[in-house]
Amino acid sequence: MTSHLCRSGLLLPFLLAITACAAAPLSGGSSRSVIVGFTLATPGDAPEALERLKKAGATDARFVSSLSSRSHSYRLTCPPVDPACDKVLDALRGQPGIDYVSIDRGKDSQ
């Protein structure tokens, strides 16, 4: 099965397409879908968890789903000066109690 995402990427100009399939989240614009791994069990939708994400610089953070008691996915909205959320993610990774931050990427049937 051909990847829907990659197939669409082939239609884009080269510079845009070359990395689209590799790193692009299913979200676009100034928001990012991320998976956050905490070092301790943390309710994903608890206000304090969301507050930590905002402290890293996100203008908004929305809980999406849980993977486990210590890992959850979120939709981050980032400031216009950080359209790829790079600064927010770096700040998040530097916080104590955060084990990892991964981009919530898309997968397709093969």
């Binding site: 998976i35 993977l67 919530d104 990427r105 898309g106 997968k107 397709d108």
Partner: peptide
């Protein structure tokens, strides 16, 4: 996997 594939977060949760 649904329309346009699936998210890592759902896949990982499903695997676990």
């Amino acid at each position: 996997l649904g329309k346009c594939g699936g998210f890592d977060s759902d896949i990982i949760a499903g695997m676990r």
